[in-house]
Amino acid sequence: MADAPETSVDETPRGFIKSPLDFGGGLFLLALAVVGYIGAFNLPYGHMNSIGSGLLPKSVAILVGAFGLGIMLQGLFIEGDRLESWGIRGPIFVLGAVLVFAFAIRPLGLAIAGPLCVIVAAMADKDTRPVELVIFSLIMTALCVGLFKFLLRLPIPVFPPGYGPF
């Protein structure tokens, strides 16, 4: 991110938080630590000659939290980068495409899940061309069927169960 030419980092005055990037990163680590600690809350520490299942997750979670706090503090006092803005369109459609694939592959098979996945993913981009995309998604799927089903013989359903030769 060194090659971001337009945002001149050090010119604009900062508020209370000198480095929002570090502060946010620290906060993120802290949040992960809390989730991790809660997840391991009921596990025993055990004792030295048989360490319990909780010792490592809990102590690592505490360490993560400590580092998170440290990075947050650093963000408060040491000048640094701003937070980047988050995209919305990209995550929704790309990850949506993954979810579509996950839910469609078993009941519908690759022949349907494949084009759906490609088309939904492509919507993440502004300059998609519908006709090209549909044709491309079908070709990609056909290639994948040939590759995964016939060449590599992976047990992937191609058609909905019961509705096709495989």
Binding site: A102, A122, D125
Partner: peptide, 23 residues
Amino acid sequence: YRLMFPSIVLLCCIGIYSINNSP
């Protein structure tokens, strides 16, 4: 890239699925 990234997404999905046949 408008065609490349959807293909990568599809290939990744199939690849992950094939590890354990798990959606």
